[in-house]
Amino acid sequence: MIINHPLLGPCDAQEFTYLGDASLLHRPDGMAEGAEAAFVDYAYPRENPAGLHRELWFHEQGDRSWLVVTRDTVTHEITQVELASDVARREGRSR
């Protein structure tokens, strides 16, 4: 698989490590009411769809950026690649 890095251009997926579903960007607030249940839900169950999947890849052998890759789990086709920091900011996760 080739991941089209937004800054570096096409890179072999071998340069990356894979973390999983991009919902992991939304770490719950540990101090909030019901945090325990929220953390169980965050850590264990997954949508695991057959089809489009937004997922986190880390450019370990490259610029060490985190990316959000949209990939079809049935065909392995990659349709969108974004910097995770951009996605997190857009989704209200980072300052």
Partner: peptide, 13 residues
């Protein structure tokens, strides 16, 4: 292979 997949086929690496 290390990433979510329902493809029943893997990649070269």
């Amino acid at each position: 292979d290390g990433y979510n997949s329902y493809a029943q086929r893997g990649n070269l690496p």
